[in-house]
Computed example of a mutant assay.
Amino acid sequence: MPNTLNMVQAINQALMEEMQRDETIVVYGEDVGVEGGVFRVTVDLQKKYGEKRVFDTPLAESAIVGTAVGMAINGLRPIVEMQFSGFSYPAFNQIISHVARMRNRSRGKYNLPMVIRAPYGGGIRALEHHSESTEALYAQIPGLKVVIPSTPYDAKGLLISAIRDNDPVLFWEPKRIYRAFKQEVPEGPYEIPIGKAKIIQPGEDITVVSWGAMVRDVQKAIEMVKDKDISVELIDLRTIAPMDRESFVESVKKTGRILVVHEAPKTLGVGAEIISIVNEKAFLYLEAPPTRLTGFDTTFPLPRGEQHYIPTPERIAKTIEDVVRY
């Protein structure tokens, strides 16, 4: 039977069910135990599974990730949480030097079945280091998988796939849509393959690629251009690494146009990689310049400025129209 859940509830359900299925899973991090996480994603996990399997840690991201490496090598499946993705930088050395490279370094002797979870992105009027979109930093590192869901249904299915994966997965959760809407989510386990994008709606005039919280804003923009006789094919990338290149390349071959919408800064962002792939694989099909609509090349602003930073449905709609009318 499906339940109607928001993203927080869907992720919590995935954790509950997977911990019941597999006793090697441990969940720990900053305030995940007694408080159930800063956004209450891990609420009641400690009550059900006890302090040995769900526990709080010091505010020491490098130690959180470093201990997970040791646990994963020795037979556990750790799921660690950092309160915000912007707090992941102290753990950067562990993630690059050990998490991403252990399988290669040991020539396949060791693998790290671990998940690093963090609330990600802006839009909740938070303070400094709470609103970054850092997916490009980690997607560029071989050995890491980077997943960003956009719906409660996808969040549960992708997280279960991440937990069961025998390699490390960074699971970035767009906090702006944690409680923005509800969706039917089945009880019991189901998996959504990591590395497979989703065509949310088919279209003929332009391909729009996005992920995370921005997908919802693109959908609002599509409604705005409907009366202008513009048919949009919307692709939710879902997984930044590995990237489902075929999904948007084949789409562009049909539509002849592409717009990438993401919240992170423009320079060296994921949008640049997508457009490069399109230029390599579908250049002769293009009828307009491949286009990016993104955040700015600045530090994410404090609350009073964030509405000027994140692409709005109005800006997205105008850009869609500009590309189609080129």
Rank of each mutant, 00 (worst) to 15 (best):
N3H: 12
A10E: 03
N12H: 04
Q13T: 09
A14L: 04
L15I: 07
M16D: 13
E17S: 08
E18I: 02
M19K: 01
T24W: 03
T24G: 04
I25G: 02
Y28T: 04
V38W: 07
D44S: 13
L45N: 05
R53K: 12
D56R: 04
A63H: 08
T67L: 12
V69I: 12
G70H: 06
A72V: 05
G75S: 07
L76F: 11
Q83F: 01
G86F: 00
G86C: 05
S88C: 12
F92I: 15
I95P: 05
I95D: 00
H98I: 06
R107D: 14
R107T: 09
Y110K: 14
G121R: 00
G121T: 07
G121L: 03
G123T: 05
E128P: 00
S131V: 03
S131M: 07
L137C: 14
A139N: 09
Q140Y: 12
K145I: 02
V146G: 08
T151L: 11
Y153K: 15
D154M: 06
D154Y: 03
I160L: 08
A162P: 02
D165C: 12
D167G: 10
L170T: 12
K182N: 14
P186W: 10
I194A: 09
I194E: 05
G195N: 11
K196L: 06
A197K: 03
T207W: 04
V225M: 12
I230C: 06
I230W: 01
S231T: 06
A241N: 15
M243Y: 00
S251D: 13
V252W: 07
V252Q: 04
H262W: 02
G269I: 08
E273L: 11
I274H: 04
I275V: 15
S276Q: 15
A282K: 07
F283C: 10
P290E: 12
R292G: 07
R292H: 04
G295S: 09
F296T: 13
T299R: 12
F300H: 15
H308N: 14
T312N: 06
E314N: 09
K318D: 14
E321V: 10
R325T: 13
Y326Q: 13
